[in-house]
Amino acid sequence: METSLTPEQQADLQTFGRRLAEIRKARGWSQERLALESGLARSYLGGIERGQRNVALLNILKLARTLECDPGELFRT
């Protein structure tokens, strides 16, 4: 996990990652399929879902397009 983050920021990353995994699984997709469809590495996606990666805005948009959801859906709890 990124060491320069506050506990609140770490919790935010974990919440985002859980939501991403929830949406992915609701579509019946594996991390591997999301990686192939989005062009992002599976290990990177795993890090996002575990709350270990601070995902860039462009990658959030790429994930939302790939999952055919509004980017805001990835932030809802």
Rank of each mutant, 00 (worst) to 15 (best):
M1T: 04
M1D: 02
E2W: 00
E2L: 05
S4Q: 10
S4G: 00
S4C: 06
S4A: 03
S4D: 11
L5I: 04
L5N: 02
L5W: 01
T6V: 03
P7V: 05
E8Y: 00
Q9I: 00
Q9S: 06
Q10C: 01
Q10T: 11
Q10W: 01
Q10L: 11
Q10H: 12
D12L: 05
Q14F: 05
Q14A: 12
T15M: 10
T15V: 07
T15I: 02
T15G: 02
F16G: 07
F16E: 01
F16K: 01
G17P: 10
R19E: 13
L20D: 12
L20K: 01
A21I: 02
A21E: 10
A21P: 07
I23G: 08
I23Y: 05
I23K: 04
K25P: 02
K25W: 02
K25T: 14
R27I: 01
R27W: 11
R27L: 12
G28T: 10
G28A: 07
G28E: 09
G28K: 04
G28I: 06
G28F: 05
W29H: 14
S30P: 11
Q31T: 13
Q31W: 08
Q31N: 10
E32A: 15
E32W: 01
R33H: 13
A35T: 08
A35I: 12
L36F: 10
E37C: 03
E37A: 15
S38W: 10
S38H: 12
S38Q: 09
S38T: 10
S38M: 11
G39Y: 08
G39S: 13
G39L: 10
A41I: 02
A41K: 11
A41H: 14
S43R: 06
S43F: 00
S43G: 05
S43W: 02
S43V: 13
S43P: 03
Y44A: 02
Y44S: 03
Y44T: 09
Y44F: 15
L45T: 09
L45I: 15
G46F: 11
G46S: 15
G46D: 12
G47Y: 08
G47N: 09
G47I: 03
I48S: 04
I48N: 07
E49K: 08
E49G: 13
E49H: 15
G51F: 12
G51N: 09
G51I: 07
Q52P: 00
Q52H: 13
Q52C: 10
R53G: 04
R53I: 15
R53L: 06
R53D: 03
N54Q: 11
V55G: 03
V55K: 06
L57P: 00
L58H: 11
L61V: 13
K62C: 14
K62A: 13
K62R: 15
K62Q: 13
K62P: 05
K62G: 01
L63M: 15
L63F: 03
A64M: 07
A64Y: 08
A64K: 08
R65F: 07
R65A: 08
R65S: 11
T66S: 08
L67Y: 03
L67P: 11
L67I: 11
E68T: 06
D70W: 04
D70S: 14
P71H: 06
P71V: 09
G72L: 12
G72Q: 08
E73G: 00
L74C: 04
L74V: 08
F75T: 01
F75Q: 01
R76Y: 02
T77W: 04
